[in-house]
Every structure is written in structure tokens, then in C-alpha cells.
């Protein structure tokens, strides 16, 4: 982080900085969950291939689980990437903004990201509630489908926490303390 000029209260956030040294809740949690989900996808898919060729047994439940694990992995992986600032974004122009504008731009991103995932929490929560209320079942196995969907709002809450954890540490606190 570059030293502040006098008369300019806005700190100069390093927009390309990655890593999560600021995180109080270790990102290892998401990493471990993501690794576990991907490992499970691998094992189920391999099991499916092996069973299909080696035996005549049925392995019909794989799609439903694999697809759920894919969604789960997507959102825990995305959460980890929010903590470490690794989502794909264009920093070319941002790096060339003056520090104050750069800080403002980062603040807008923080607000917009929060709003986006708050909407997913809200509308994802309503879908989950509906599925529970109407007793919807999954097309493959006939399981209560809210058990799958509920992870969408839950993990979106985790993402909001990650976004704010980073925003607080890199944007808001330096300005308050600085």
C-alpha cells in the first residue's frame, strides 16, 4: 500500500493484491469444502464409469448428487475467491485512477456485490421456502428439494461476509484509522 499524501484522506487500495491475510475466519474452510465437493464429484463420476462397464448394477442417483455438488462447489469456490480477491475483473483502468477515485470505485463494487448477493439470499430463500412449503421433491431420487436449494442462500450469506471482511480490512478501516 503506497504512503498517503497529506490532504488526501483516502487510502490507496492496491487493487491487484490477492491473498487473505486479513481474514479472521480462515479461507481454509471454503478451500476444504470445495476440495471435498470436487473430490466427491470425481469419485462419483469414476464410480459411475466403472460400475457401468464392470457390472449390470444401476447407479442412477449420480446425476442428482453430482449436479448438487457442482452448485455447492461453485459457491464455496466463489466465496474463497472473494476472500482472496481472485475473481476475474478489469483492473487496467482502476489502476490508472487517482487514489480517491479508485477508493470510491472499490466502494461502489463493494455495494453492488453486496446488493447482488443479498438478492440471491432473498430470492433464493423464497424459492427454498416455497419448495419446503409445497413439499416439492427432486425428479431423480424424490428427495425434498429444499435440502439442495437452501445452500444457495446460505453460501451467498457466506459470500457477503467474505466481501465485507475484505472491504472492511482493505477499504474502510484504513480510511477510518488513517
Amino acid at each position: 500500500m503506497s504512503p498517503q499524501k497529506s490532504g488526501d484522506p483516502a487510502p490507496d487500495p492496491d487493487v491487484t493484491e490477492t491473498g487473505a491475510d486479513h481474514a479472521r475466519v480462515p479461507v481454509k474452510i471454503e478451500e476444504a469444502l470445495g476440495a471435498a465437493a470436487l473430490a466427491a464429484i470425481c469419485l462419483i463420476s469414476l464410480g459411475n464409469v466403472v460400475v457401468r462397464y464392470a457390472t449390470n448394477a444401476s447407479f442412477a442417483f449420480t446425476e442428482e448428487f453430482s449436479v448438487f455438488l457442482l452448485v455447492f462447489m461453485t459457491f464455496v469456490g466463489a466465496s474463497a475467491a472473494f476472500a482472496t480477491n481472485e475473481h476475474i475483473r478489469i483492473t487496467f483502468f482502476l489502476e490508472r485512477f487517482p487514489p480517491r477515485l479508485r477508493w470510491l470505485a472499490e466502494l461502489v463494487t463493494l455495494a453492488v456485490t453486496t446488493a447482488m448477493f443479498a438478492m440471491i439470499v432473498w430470492y433464493g430463500g423464497r424459492v427454498t421456502y416455497d419448495e419446503w412449503y409445497w413439499g416439492e421433491t427432486s425428479p431423480g431420487l424424490g428427495n425434498p428439494v429444499w435440502l439442495y436449494t437452501i445452500w444457495l442462500p446460505l453460501l451467498s450469506v457466506a459470500i457477503i461476509c467474505r466481501v465485507w471482511g475484505r472491504g472492511w480490512a482493505k477499504l474502510l478501516r484504513p480510511r477510518r484509522d488513517g
Binding site: R52, N56, A57, S58, F59, A60, F61, T62, E63, E64, T137, P139, G140, L141, G142
Partner: peptide, 20 residues
């Protein structure tokens, strides 16, 4: 595709149903 009843039917006939 669609409902667990299809899994049950094809399993009863000795086939290997796959949801896809």
C-alpha cells in the same frame, strides 16, 4: 428423466435407468 417412478419401472424390468 423427470420422476423417480421411471427409475422404479426400469429397475423392475431389469434395466439400468440413468437420469440424464
Amino acid at each position: 428423466v423427470g420422476s423417480p417412478i421411471f427409475n422404479d419401472m426400469f429397475s423392475a424390468m431389469g434395466a439400468n435407468p440413468t437420469q440424464m
